[in-house]
Amino acid sequence: MKKYLDIIVNGFVKENPTFVLMLGMCPTLATTTSAINGLSMGLATMFVLICSNLVISFLKNLTPDKVHIPVYIAVIATFVTVLQLMLKAYLPEIDASLGLFIPLIVVNCVILGRAESFASKNGPLASIFDGIGIGLGFTFGLTLLGICREFLGSGSVFGVILFPESYGALMFILPPGAFITLGFLVAIVNKIRGV
């Protein structure tokens, strides 16, 4: 059991995709205009990551090396489409607010990266835990960034108003604010990790 816990902690802390590995930057920056958007994007990615890690760890011996990338991409794209259809059918608000970035989960380098570096070398159970760990790390990164941007930009967190919107610095919701907020968050994380 300890081994699996370590895998989760590793994904969350040591190989945090947002602050340490710096992978999957497109959705990280684009969808974090509010805390709730960041959280839903993180969970959507985590779903695809866990499923694709699981299936790929089963398929690892059945795919010849030369065609492993197309097979992995097909598996990931399938889960992304499943997710897309499910969201459209049952949670249309989330589908509307994340828009283009749902199909773009396919090219999120976190997912293909984990398939290559973890799921293709480990068993199904370990791969699931790796998906959970990395997925949680990614969700945490996106939610934290979303909270900071929503708070600084519009004075609320998860829609709860903390100070009047007119005092917010709008720039943090706009594209430049995404880069700058993440830049400072990374600096803080670096400081904590003692790099």
Partner: peptide, 23 residues
Amino acid sequence: VPRGMRGMSVVLVTAGLLSLAFM
């Protein structure tokens, strides 16, 4: 660059300033 900001951190802030310019 200040120590904690070295690497990706300062790169991201710079990108933010460039993005601000494009706005």
